[in-house]
Simulated assay, not measured.
Amino acid sequence: MYGSGNADALLARWNEWTPLNTNQIFLGLPAVEGAASSGYMPPDVLTSQVLPSIKSSPKYGGVMLWNRFYDQQNGYSDVIKGSIN
């Protein structure tokens, strides 16, 4: 979980989930700090520290943001869309 502000902690959780018997795993994040009680990650941290590591996983399915209303307000998806594939 990123709530601690530590990308390494999130990557450790990712590595716990990837051995599961599933085809794809999506990384879910709040689109703004107020969309959840914790877990907000600034887009620059996501694109520079997290995505480079998890995109190499065969289980990586993409990024999911909640909720669309907040994403439309701050444009989070517009900032990261060039980095998610």
Score class of each variant (00 low, 15 high):
Arg13Pro: 00
Gly28Cys: 11
Gly34Val: 04
Gly75Lys: 13
Thr22Phe: 09
Asn67Gly: 13
Pro52Cys: 08
Tyr70Ile: 04
Lys59Tyr: 01
Asp8Tyr: 07
Ser56Tyr: 06
Thr47Asn: 06
Asp78Trp: 09
Glu33Val: 06
Arg68Gly: 02
Asp44Ile: 11
Gly5Val: 10
Tyr2His: 04
Gly34Pro: 02
Arg68Pro: 04
Lys81Trp: 06
Phe26Thr: 08
Ala9Val: 13
Thr47Lys: 13
Arg68Lys: 12
Gly28Tyr: 05
Val32Ile: 13
Thr47Trp: 00
Asn74Thr: 12
Tyr40Pro: 00
Tyr60Pro: 07
Phe69Asp: 13
Leu11Cys: 06
Ser57Tyr: 06
Tyr70Glu: 14
Gly82Arg: 14
Ala36Ile: 03
Ile54Glu: 07
Gln49Arg: 15
Asp71Leu: 01
Gly75Ala: 12
Phe69Thr: 11
Phe26Tyr: 15
Ser83Thr: 02
Gly34Thr: 07
Gln72Phe: 03
Asp8Cys: 02
Leu46Ser: 02
Ala7Tyr: 12
Thr18Lys: 05
Ile25Phe: 02
Thr22Asp: 04
Ala31Arg: 00
Ala9Asp: 15
Gly3His: 12
Tyr76Cys: 01
Ala12His: 08
Ala35Arg: 10
Pro58Asn: 14
Ala12Trp: 05
Gly61Arg: 11
Asn15Ser: 02
Ile80Cys: 05
Gly5Tyr: 09
Tyr60Glu: 08
Asn21Asp: 14
Glu16His: 04
Pro43Asn: 11
Ser77Gly: 15
Pro30Gln: 06
Tyr76Gln: 01
Ala36Asn: 09
Leu46Met: 07
Tyr60Leu: 10
Ser37Met: 11
Ser77Cys: 13
Glu33Asp: 06
Gly5Gln: 09
Arg68Phe: 07
Pro42Glu: 15
Pro19Asp: 01
Ser38Glu: 14
Gly62Trp: 09
Gln72His: 06
Phe26Arg: 14
Gln24Ile: 02
Asn15Ala: 00
Ser48Trp: 09
Asp44Trp: 12
Val63Gln: 03
Leu46Gln: 01
Leu27Arg: 08
Gly75Asn: 14
Pro58Trp: 06
Gly39His: 10
Lys55Val: 08
Tyr70Pro: 03
Ile54Met: 11
Asn6Val: 13
Ala7Glu: 11
Met41Val: 15
Ser83Asn: 15
Gly75Leu: 12
Pro58Cys: 07
Phe69Arg: 09
Gly62Tyr: 08
Thr22Gln: 08
Asp8Pro: 01
Trp14Gly: 03
Gln72Ser: 12
Asp78His: 13
Ala36Cys: 08
Asn67Glu: 14
Asn67Thr: 12
Leu10Glu: 05
Ser37Gly: 15
Gly61Val: 07
Leu10Pro: 00
Leu20Val: 00
Leu29Met: 12
Leu10Trp: 02
Val45Asn: 05
Trp14Ser: 02
Gly5His: 08
Val63Asn: 03
Leu46Val: 03
Gly28Phe: 05
Val79Asn: 09
Asp71Asn: 15
Arg68Ala: 10
Gly28Glu: 13
Gly3Leu: 10
Gly39Gln: 10
Gln73Pro: 06
Lys55Arg: 15
Asp71Ser: 00
Pro58Lys: 13
Gly39Trp: 08
Thr47Ser: 10
Lys55Gln: 14
Leu11Val: 06
Asn6Trp: 03
Leu46Ala: 04
Ile54Pro: 07
Leu11Gln: 03
Tyr2Gly: 00
Arg13Cys: 07
Glu16Leu: 08
Thr18Gln: 08
Asn6Gly: 05
Asn21Thr: 07
Leu20Gly: 00
Asn23Ile: 03
Asn21Leu: 04
Thr22Met: 14
Leu46Asp: 02
Gln72Pro: 01
Val45Gly: 03
